[in-house]
Design a protein around this nucleic acid. Structure first.
Length: 456
DNA sequence: TTTTGAGTTGTTCGA
DNA sequence: GTCGAACAACTCAAA
Protein backbone atom coordinates (compact mmCIF):
# COMPACT_ATOMS: atom_id res chain seq x y z
CA UNK A 1 0.00 0.00 0.00
CA UNK A 2 1.42 3.34 -1.01
CA UNK A 3 1.62 6.17 1.50
CA UNK A 4 -0.95 8.97 1.19
CA UNK A 5 -0.13 11.97 -0.94
CA UNK A 6 0.42 14.98 1.29
CA UNK A 7 0.34 18.72 0.52
CA UNK A 8 1.03 21.69 2.72
CA UNK A 9 -1.25 24.71 2.71
CA UNK A 10 0.93 27.44 4.14
CA UNK A 11 -1.34 30.13 5.61
CA UNK A 12 -0.01 33.65 5.93
CA UNK A 13 -2.47 36.42 5.27
CA UNK A 14 -5.34 34.18 4.21
CA UNK A 15 -6.72 32.92 7.53
CA UNK A 16 -9.97 31.52 6.22
CA UNK A 17 -11.55 28.38 4.77
CA UNK A 18 -14.12 29.83 2.37
CA UNK A 19 -13.34 31.37 -1.00
CA UNK A 20 -9.75 30.12 -0.73
CA UNK A 21 -8.35 28.90 -4.08
CA UNK A 22 -4.96 27.87 -2.65
CA UNK A 23 -6.62 25.70 -0.01
CA UNK A 24 -8.76 24.08 -2.70
CA UNK A 25 -5.67 23.47 -4.82
CA UNK A 26 -3.92 21.82 -1.88
CA UNK A 27 -6.91 19.60 -1.19
CA UNK A 28 -7.28 18.58 -4.84
CA UNK A 29 -3.60 17.78 -5.20
CA UNK A 30 -3.44 15.30 -2.32
CA UNK A 31 -5.06 12.78 -0.01
CA UNK A 32 -4.31 14.78 3.09
CA UNK A 33 -3.15 18.31 3.85
CA UNK A 34 -0.98 19.94 6.48
CA UNK A 35 -2.50 23.32 7.33
CA UNK A 36 0.49 25.35 8.49
CA UNK A 37 1.19 28.74 10.01
CA UNK A 38 4.76 29.78 10.73
CA UNK A 39 5.28 32.45 13.36
CA UNK A 40 7.80 34.91 12.02
CA UNK A 41 10.11 36.25 14.72
CA UNK A 42 10.98 39.43 12.85
CA UNK A 43 7.35 40.29 12.14
CA UNK A 44 6.38 39.58 15.74
CA UNK A 45 9.10 41.90 17.00
CA UNK A 46 8.00 44.67 14.68
CA UNK A 47 4.23 44.34 15.01
CA UNK A 48 2.07 46.24 17.48
CA UNK A 49 0.57 44.46 20.46
CA UNK A 50 -3.04 45.01 19.41
CA UNK A 51 -2.40 43.59 15.95
CA UNK A 52 -0.62 40.56 17.39
CA UNK A 53 -3.38 39.88 19.88
CA UNK A 54 -5.90 40.10 17.05
CA UNK A 55 -3.82 37.73 14.93
CA UNK A 56 -3.61 35.26 17.82
CA UNK A 57 -7.40 35.25 18.04
CA UNK A 58 -7.71 34.84 14.31
CA UNK A 59 -5.36 31.85 14.35
CA UNK A 60 -7.45 30.23 17.08
CA UNK A 61 -10.55 30.75 14.95
CA UNK A 62 -8.84 29.23 11.91
CA UNK A 63 -7.69 26.28 13.99
CA UNK A 64 -11.23 25.69 15.16
CA UNK A 65 -12.56 25.58 11.62
CA UNK A 66 -9.79 23.10 10.78
CA UNK A 67 -10.87 20.75 13.55
CA UNK A 68 -7.87 21.78 15.67
CA UNK A 69 -5.45 20.51 13.06
CA UNK A 70 -3.59 23.76 12.39
CA UNK A 71 0.14 23.22 12.59
CA UNK A 72 1.66 26.27 14.20
CA UNK A 73 5.27 26.79 15.07
CA UNK A 74 7.80 29.60 15.36
CA UNK A 75 10.88 29.33 13.20
CA UNK A 76 12.69 29.96 9.97
CA UNK A 77 10.38 29.31 7.02
CA UNK A 78 12.89 27.25 5.05
CA UNK A 79 13.72 25.06 8.05
CA UNK A 80 10.10 24.53 9.07
CA UNK A 81 8.98 23.69 5.55
CA UNK A 82 11.98 21.43 4.86
CA UNK A 83 11.39 19.48 8.05
CA UNK A 84 7.72 18.91 7.25
CA UNK A 85 8.41 18.03 3.63
CA UNK A 86 10.92 15.38 4.71
CA UNK A 87 8.82 14.08 7.58
CA UNK A 88 5.63 13.54 5.57
CA UNK A 89 7.01 13.18 2.04
CA UNK A 90 5.14 16.32 1.07
CA UNK A 91 4.74 16.75 -2.68
CA UNK A 92 3.46 20.30 -2.95
CA UNK A 93 3.45 23.48 -0.88
CA UNK A 94 0.48 25.70 -1.70
CA UNK A 95 0.23 29.41 -1.00
CA UNK A 96 -1.76 32.49 -1.88
CA UNK A 97 0.63 34.79 -3.71
CA UNK A 98 2.02 37.82 -1.91
CA UNK A 99 3.23 40.97 -3.58
CA UNK A 100 4.51 43.38 -0.99
CA UNK A 101 8.27 43.59 -0.47
CA UNK A 102 8.64 41.63 2.73
CA UNK A 103 6.30 38.81 1.78
CA UNK A 104 7.59 38.52 -1.77
CA UNK A 105 11.21 38.39 -0.56
CA UNK A 106 10.34 35.75 2.02
CA UNK A 107 8.70 33.55 -0.62
CA UNK A 108 11.59 34.10 -3.03
CA UNK A 109 14.04 33.02 -0.33
CA UNK A 110 12.06 29.85 0.28
CA UNK A 111 12.09 29.07 -3.43
CA UNK A 112 15.79 29.85 -3.69
CA UNK A 113 16.30 27.16 -1.05
CA UNK A 114 14.78 24.64 -3.44
CA UNK A 115 11.21 24.52 -2.18
CA UNK A 116 8.65 24.94 -4.94
CA UNK A 117 5.68 27.08 -3.97
CA UNK A 118 2.41 26.61 -5.87
CA UNK A 119 0.67 29.99 -6.03
CA UNK A 120 -3.09 30.02 -6.43
CA UNK A 121 -4.94 33.27 -5.92
CA UNK A 122 -3.88 36.38 -4.04
CA UNK A 123 -5.30 38.70 -1.39
CA UNK A 124 -6.84 40.79 -4.18
CA UNK A 125 -9.71 40.57 -6.63
CA UNK A 126 -7.21 41.50 -9.33
CA UNK A 127 -3.57 40.75 -8.58
CA UNK A 128 -1.16 43.71 -8.49
CA UNK A 129 0.53 44.34 -11.84
CA UNK A 130 -2.39 43.06 -13.90
CA UNK A 131 -4.16 46.32 -14.63
CA UNK A 132 -2.21 48.26 -17.26
CA UNK A 133 -2.96 51.13 -19.61
CA UNK A 134 -4.00 49.75 -23.01
CA UNK A 135 -2.08 52.53 -24.79
CA UNK A 136 1.42 51.66 -23.56
CA UNK A 137 1.07 48.75 -21.12
CA UNK A 138 2.38 50.78 -18.18
CA UNK A 139 0.69 51.02 -14.76
CA UNK A 140 -1.85 53.70 -13.88
CA UNK A 141 -0.86 56.53 -11.58
CA UNK A 142 -4.31 58.04 -11.19
CA UNK A 143 -7.07 56.27 -9.34
CA UNK A 144 -10.15 56.88 -11.49
CA UNK A 145 -8.78 55.50 -14.77
CA UNK A 146 -7.33 52.59 -12.76
CA UNK A 147 -10.76 51.93 -11.31
CA UNK A 148 -12.38 51.85 -14.75
CA UNK A 149 -9.73 49.51 -16.15
CA UNK A 150 -9.93 47.36 -12.99
CA UNK A 151 -13.69 46.97 -13.48
CA UNK A 152 -13.18 46.13 -17.14
CA UNK A 153 -10.53 43.55 -16.22
CA UNK A 154 -13.01 41.97 -13.83
CA UNK A 155 -12.54 39.24 -11.27
CA UNK A 156 -13.56 35.67 -10.60
CA UNK A 157 -16.65 34.65 -8.69
CA UNK A 158 -15.91 33.46 -5.14
CA UNK A 159 -14.31 30.01 -4.95
CA UNK A 160 -16.44 27.15 -3.70
CA UNK A 161 -16.42 26.09 -0.07
CA UNK A 162 -14.20 23.01 0.30
CA UNK A 163 -15.90 19.69 0.82
CA UNK A 164 -14.68 17.39 3.53
CA UNK A 165 -10.90 17.14 3.60
CA UNK A 166 -8.35 15.28 5.71
CA UNK A 167 -5.73 17.06 7.77
CA UNK A 168 -2.59 15.52 9.19
CA UNK A 169 -2.77 15.28 12.98
CA UNK A 170 -0.28 17.77 14.36
CA UNK A 171 2.33 16.53 16.80
CA UNK A 172 2.68 18.60 20.01
CA UNK A 173 5.61 20.73 18.82
CA UNK A 174 3.36 21.99 16.01
CA UNK A 175 0.79 23.34 18.44
CA UNK A 176 2.87 26.28 19.60
CA UNK A 177 0.03 28.79 19.77
CA UNK A 178 1.39 32.17 20.76
CA UNK A 179 0.21 34.06 23.77
CA UNK A 180 -0.28 37.59 22.56
CA UNK A 181 -2.28 39.34 25.28
CA UNK A 182 -4.60 42.21 24.41
CA UNK A 183 -3.36 45.35 26.18
CA UNK A 184 -5.39 46.45 29.19
CA UNK A 185 -8.46 48.55 28.43
CA UNK A 186 -8.25 48.01 24.70
CA UNK A 187 -11.34 47.11 22.75
CA UNK A 188 -10.69 45.76 19.24
CA UNK A 189 -13.02 44.18 16.70
CA UNK A 190 -13.74 40.46 16.96
CA UNK A 191 -11.26 38.42 14.90
CA UNK A 192 -11.88 35.38 12.72
CA UNK A 193 -13.59 34.32 9.51
CA UNK A 194 -16.98 33.78 11.13
CA UNK A 195 -16.86 37.26 12.68
CA UNK A 196 -15.86 38.71 9.30
CA UNK A 197 -18.79 37.09 7.50
CA UNK A 198 -21.18 38.11 10.26
CA UNK A 199 -20.01 41.70 10.19
CA UNK A 200 -20.29 41.87 6.41
CA UNK A 201 -23.80 40.48 6.55
CA UNK A 202 -24.78 43.06 9.15
CA UNK A 203 -23.14 45.83 7.13
CA UNK A 204 -24.94 44.66 3.98
CA UNK A 205 -28.28 44.65 5.74
CA UNK A 206 -27.94 47.85 7.71
CA UNK A 207 -25.39 50.27 6.29
CA UNK A 208 -24.50 49.38 2.72
CA UNK A 209 -27.46 51.10 1.05
CA UNK A 210 -26.62 54.36 2.80
CA UNK A 211 -22.85 53.89 2.57
CA UNK A 212 -22.25 56.84 0.27
CA UNK A 213 -24.16 59.15 2.62
CA UNK A 214 -23.00 57.91 6.01
CA UNK A 215 -19.48 56.64 5.55
CA UNK A 216 -17.91 60.02 6.23
CA UNK A 217 -19.55 60.71 9.57
CA UNK A 218 -17.12 59.80 12.30
CA UNK A 219 -19.78 59.17 14.94
CA UNK A 220 -21.89 56.85 12.76
CA UNK A 221 -21.18 53.14 12.31
CA UNK A 222 -21.51 53.61 8.56
CA UNK A 223 -18.32 51.94 7.33
CA UNK A 224 -17.81 48.25 6.68
CA UNK A 225 -14.93 47.73 9.12
CA UNK A 226 -13.61 45.08 6.76
CA UNK A 227 -10.03 46.38 7.05
CA UNK A 228 -8.64 43.91 9.56
CA UNK A 229 -10.53 41.01 7.97
CA UNK A 230 -9.05 41.85 4.59
CA UNK A 231 -5.61 42.37 6.05
CA UNK A 232 -5.51 38.88 7.55
CA UNK A 233 -7.49 37.36 4.72
CA UNK A 234 -10.32 36.27 7.00
CA UNK A 235 -12.51 37.37 4.12
CA UNK A 236 -11.58 37.81 0.46
CA UNK A 237 -12.47 40.98 -1.48
CA UNK A 238 -14.17 38.76 -4.08
CA UNK A 239 -16.66 37.73 -1.42
CA UNK A 240 -17.44 41.39 -0.77
CA UNK A 241 -17.67 42.30 -4.46
CA UNK A 242 -20.01 39.40 -5.16
CA UNK A 243 -22.55 40.95 -2.79
CA UNK A 244 -22.74 44.30 -4.58
CA UNK A 245 -25.19 45.72 -7.09
CA UNK A 246 -25.11 48.79 -9.31
CA UNK A 247 -26.58 51.44 -7.01
CA UNK A 248 -24.64 54.58 -6.12
CA UNK A 249 -24.04 53.37 -2.57
CA UNK A 250 -22.83 49.98 -3.74
CA UNK A 251 -20.57 51.59 -6.31
CA UNK A 252 -19.04 53.79 -3.62
CA UNK A 253 -18.24 50.70 -1.58
CA UNK A 254 -16.80 48.93 -4.64
CA UNK A 255 -14.58 51.96 -5.14
CA UNK A 256 -13.26 51.62 -1.62
CA UNK A 257 -12.31 48.01 -2.32
CA UNK A 258 -10.65 49.26 -5.51
CA UNK A 259 -8.60 51.79 -3.51
CA UNK A 260 -7.08 48.92 -1.58
CA UNK A 261 -6.25 47.21 -4.87
CA UNK A 262 -4.93 50.43 -6.41
CA UNK A 263 -2.54 51.05 -3.53
CA UNK A 264 -1.34 47.43 -3.64
CA UNK A 265 -0.71 47.91 -7.36
CA UNK A 266 1.12 51.21 -6.83
CA UNK A 267 3.33 49.66 -4.15
CA UNK A 268 3.99 46.63 -6.35
CA UNK A 269 5.14 48.91 -9.16
CA UNK A 270 7.10 51.16 -6.78
CA UNK A 271 8.32 48.68 -4.17
CA UNK A 272 10.16 51.15 -1.92
CA UNK A 273 7.30 53.61 -1.53
CA UNK A 274 6.22 52.19 1.79
CA UNK A 275 9.20 54.11 3.18
CA UNK A 276 10.27 56.49 0.42
CA UNK A 277 8.50 59.49 -1.13
CA UNK A 278 6.40 58.47 -4.11
CA UNK A 279 6.97 61.99 -5.48
CA UNK A 280 10.71 62.40 -4.89
CA UNK A 281 10.74 66.19 -4.78
CA UNK A 282 8.87 66.05 -1.47
CA UNK A 283 11.97 64.56 0.09
CA UNK A 284 13.50 68.03 -0.42
CA UNK A 285 10.79 69.77 1.59
CA UNK A 286 11.73 71.45 4.87
CA UNK A 287 10.34 69.37 7.74
CA UNK A 288 10.51 69.83 11.48
CA UNK A 289 12.08 67.31 13.84
CA UNK A 290 9.69 65.32 16.02
CA UNK A 291 9.52 66.63 19.57
CA UNK A 292 6.87 67.61 22.07
CA UNK A 293 4.31 68.39 19.37
CA UNK A 294 4.67 64.93 17.87
CA UNK A 295 4.24 63.48 21.36
CA UNK A 296 1.07 65.52 21.81
CA UNK A 297 -0.25 64.21 18.48
CA UNK A 298 0.46 60.60 19.50
CA UNK A 299 -1.28 61.08 22.83
CA UNK A 300 -4.32 62.91 21.48
CA UNK A 301 -3.42 66.15 23.25
CA UNK A 302 -3.08 68.61 20.40
CA UNK A 303 -5.89 70.81 21.66
CA UNK A 304 -7.87 70.20 18.46
CA UNK A 305 -10.88 68.14 19.59
CA UNK A 306 -11.51 66.21 16.35
CA UNK A 307 -7.82 65.30 16.03
CA UNK A 308 -7.53 64.25 19.66
CA UNK A 309 -10.71 62.15 19.59
CA UNK A 310 -9.37 60.28 16.58
CA UNK A 311 -5.93 59.62 18.05
CA UNK A 312 -7.48 58.31 21.25
CA UNK A 313 -9.82 56.10 19.24
CA UNK A 314 -6.79 54.65 17.46
CA UNK A 315 -4.97 53.78 20.66
CA UNK A 316 -8.08 52.49 22.39
CA UNK A 317 -9.62 50.45 19.56
CA UNK A 318 -6.76 49.70 17.19
CA UNK A 319 -8.92 51.36 14.59
CA UNK A 320 -9.72 54.86 13.38
CA UNK A 321 -12.54 56.11 11.20
CA UNK A 322 -11.48 56.72 7.60
CA UNK A 323 -12.45 60.38 7.71
CA UNK A 324 -10.38 61.09 10.80
CA UNK A 325 -7.38 59.17 9.45
CA UNK A 326 -7.12 61.92 6.84
CA UNK A 327 -7.70 64.68 9.36
CA UNK A 328 -4.97 63.55 11.77
CA UNK A 329 -2.58 62.80 8.89
CA UNK A 330 -3.09 66.23 7.41
CA UNK A 331 -2.52 67.72 10.85
CA UNK A 332 0.77 65.87 11.35
CA UNK A 333 2.17 66.80 7.95
CA UNK A 334 0.67 70.22 7.27
CA UNK A 335 0.15 71.71 10.73
CA UNK A 336 3.15 70.18 12.51
CA UNK A 337 5.36 69.97 9.37
CA UNK A 338 6.55 66.46 10.22
CA UNK A 339 7.38 63.74 7.73
CA UNK A 340 4.54 61.37 6.88
CA UNK A 341 6.63 58.31 7.79
CA UNK A 342 6.40 59.25 11.48
CA UNK A 343 2.64 59.06 11.39
CA UNK A 344 2.69 56.00 9.17
CA UNK A 345 4.83 54.17 11.75
CA UNK A 346 2.54 55.22 14.59
CA UNK A 347 -0.47 53.92 12.68
CA UNK A 348 1.40 50.68 11.94
CA UNK A 349 2.02 50.21 15.64
CA UNK A 350 -1.60 50.72 16.62
CA UNK A 351 -3.88 49.72 13.74
CA UNK A 352 -5.30 46.22 13.83
CA UNK A 353 -6.04 46.61 10.10
CA UNK A 354 -2.51 47.83 9.34
CA UNK A 355 -1.74 47.04 5.72
CA UNK A 356 1.57 48.24 4.32
CA UNK A 357 0.25 49.42 0.93
CA UNK A 358 -2.96 51.08 2.12
CA UNK A 359 -1.30 52.68 5.12
CA UNK A 360 1.79 54.05 3.39
CA UNK A 361 -0.09 55.29 0.34
CA UNK A 362 -2.96 56.65 2.37
CA UNK A 363 -0.40 58.70 4.25
CA UNK A 364 1.38 59.77 1.07
CA UNK A 365 -1.93 60.80 -0.48
CA UNK A 366 -2.73 63.05 2.46
CA UNK A 367 0.81 64.38 2.66
CA UNK A 368 0.53 65.50 -0.96
CA UNK A 369 3.47 63.38 -2.14
CA UNK A 370 1.34 60.41 -3.20
CA UNK A 371 -1.18 59.59 -5.91
CA UNK A 372 -3.55 62.49 -5.30
CA UNK A 373 -4.28 63.95 -8.75
CA UNK A 374 -5.67 67.20 -7.43
CA UNK A 375 -4.07 70.33 -8.91
CA UNK A 376 -4.12 72.10 -5.54
CA UNK A 377 -2.49 71.33 -2.22
CA UNK A 378 -5.12 70.01 0.16
CA UNK A 379 -4.84 71.23 3.70
CA UNK A 380 -7.57 69.92 5.96
CA UNK A 381 -9.00 72.33 8.51
CA UNK A 382 -9.35 70.28 11.71
CA UNK A 383 -12.10 72.52 13.08
CA UNK A 384 -14.11 72.63 9.86
CA UNK A 385 -13.76 68.86 9.38
CA UNK A 386 -15.08 68.31 12.89
CA UNK A 387 -18.05 70.57 12.29
CA UNK A 388 -18.89 68.83 9.02
CA UNK A 389 -18.34 65.21 9.98
CA UNK A 390 -19.13 65.24 13.70
CA UNK A 391 -21.79 67.89 13.69
CA UNK A 392 -23.22 67.33 17.15
CA UNK A 393 -19.87 66.34 18.67
CA UNK A 394 -20.78 62.77 19.65
CA UNK A 395 -17.51 61.35 18.35
CA UNK A 396 -15.47 63.91 20.30
CA UNK A 397 -17.54 63.38 23.44
CA UNK A 398 -17.00 59.61 23.23
CA UNK A 399 -13.21 59.80 23.23
CA UNK A 400 -12.44 63.12 24.90
CA UNK A 401 -14.19 63.19 28.27
CA UNK A 402 -12.62 66.56 29.12
CA UNK A 403 -14.97 68.07 26.53
CA UNK A 404 -18.07 65.98 27.20
CA UNK A 405 -19.79 68.84 29.02
CA UNK A 406 -19.67 71.14 25.99
CA UNK A 407 -22.56 71.64 23.57
CA UNK A 408 -22.45 70.94 19.85
CA UNK A 409 -21.89 74.66 19.25
CA UNK A 410 -18.93 74.79 21.65
CA UNK A 411 -17.17 71.47 21.37
CA UNK A 412 -15.20 72.09 18.17
CA UNK A 413 -13.64 75.29 19.47
CA UNK A 414 -13.35 74.99 23.25
CA UNK A 415 -10.96 77.94 23.38
CA UNK A 416 -13.86 80.29 22.60
CA UNK A 417 -15.84 79.34 25.68
CA UNK A 418 -15.44 80.07 29.34
CA UNK A 419 -15.49 76.50 30.58
CA UNK A 420 -13.76 74.98 27.53
CA UNK A 421 -10.70 74.18 29.61
CA UNK A 422 -12.43 73.57 32.94
CA UNK A 423 -11.80 69.81 32.75
CA UNK A 424 -8.09 70.05 31.91
CA UNK A 425 -8.37 69.80 28.14
CA UNK A 426 -5.02 70.92 26.65
CA UNK A 427 -4.66 74.21 24.82
CA UNK A 428 -3.92 74.19 21.10
CA UNK A 429 -0.30 73.37 20.36
CA UNK A 430 -0.39 75.35 17.09
CA UNK A 431 -2.61 77.86 15.32
CA UNK A 432 -4.06 76.18 12.24
CA UNK A 433 -4.36 79.37 10.19
CA UNK A 434 -0.67 80.15 10.69
CA UNK A 435 0.53 76.59 10.04
CA UNK A 436 -1.58 76.28 6.90
CA UNK A 437 0.18 79.34 5.55
CA UNK A 438 3.54 77.89 6.58
CA UNK A 439 2.76 74.57 4.84
CA UNK A 440 1.94 76.39 1.60
CA UNK A 441 5.14 78.43 1.88
CA UNK A 442 7.24 75.29 2.29
CA UNK A 443 5.50 73.78 -0.73
CA UNK A 444 6.54 76.78 -2.83
CA UNK A 445 10.17 76.07 -1.99
CA UNK A 446 10.09 72.69 -3.73
CA UNK A 447 8.24 73.75 -6.88
CA UNK A 448 10.01 72.26 -9.89
CA UNK A 449 10.73 75.54 -11.67
CA UNK A 450 12.36 77.14 -8.66
CA UNK A 451 16.15 77.27 -8.79
CA UNK A 452 17.87 75.60 -5.84
CA UNK A 453 18.51 77.81 -2.81
CA UNK A 454 21.86 79.58 -3.12
CA UNK A 455 24.44 77.82 -1.03
CA UNK A 456 22.12 74.89 -0.40
C1' DT B 1 2.95 64.14 -31.37
C1' DT B 2 -0.16 67.27 -29.77
C1' DT B 3 -4.11 68.52 -27.61
C1' DT B 4 -7.80 68.17 -24.55
C1' DG B 5 -10.20 66.79 -20.56
C1' DA B 6 -10.15 65.57 -15.98
C1' DG B 7 -8.69 64.46 -11.28
C1' DT B 8 -11.82 60.59 -3.63
C1' DT B 9 -12.44 62.64 0.57
C1' DG B 10 -10.53 70.68 0.60
C1' DT B 11 -10.63 75.70 2.10
C1' DT B 12 -11.52 80.40 1.89
C1' DC B 13 -13.64 84.41 0.37
C1' DG B 14 -17.17 87.33 -0.85
C1' DA B 15 -21.79 88.02 -2.50
C1' DG C 1 -25.92 80.39 6.82
C1' DT C 2 -25.40 79.24 1.91
C1' DC C 3 -23.34 79.08 -2.48
C1' DG C 4 -20.24 79.56 -6.35
C1' DA C 5 -15.78 80.97 -7.66
C1' DA C 6 -11.01 81.13 -6.83
C1' DC C 7 -7.22 78.90 -5.23
C1' DA C 8 -2.89 78.15 -8.77
C1' DA C 9 -2.21 76.34 -12.82
C1' DC C 10 -0.08 70.27 -12.10
C1' DT C 11 0.03 65.83 -14.18
C1' DC C 12 -1.88 61.99 -16.24
C1' DA C 13 -4.75 59.50 -19.65
C1' DA C 14 -6.72 59.18 -23.81
C1' DA C 15 -8.27 60.92 -28.06
Amino acid sequence: MSSPKTSIIWFRRDLRINDHPALLAAIESSDQIIPLFILDKQQIEEAGSKLLAYMGQSLRALDESLGNKLHIIEGDQVEVLSTLIKKYGVEQVHISAEYERYGAARDARVEAAGITLVRTGSPYAVAPGRVLKPSDATPYKVYTPFYKAWCTHGWRAPAVTPKKFTCVEPTPEYRAFPDFPMPEGVNVIQAGEAAALKRFKEFSNKALDSYDENRNFAGIDGTSKMGSYLKFGEIHPRTLLAGLGESKAHDTFRKEIAWREFYADVLFNNPMTDVEYYAPKFAQMRYDKPGTQFKAWCEGKTGYPFVDAAMRQLVHEGWMHNRTRMVVASFLVKDLHLEWQLGERFFAEHLVDYDVASNAHGWQWTAGCGTDASPYYRVFNPIEQGRRFDENGDYIRKYVPELAHLSAAEIHEPWLFLDGYSKNYPERIVDHAIERHEALARLQEIKADKPPMPGA
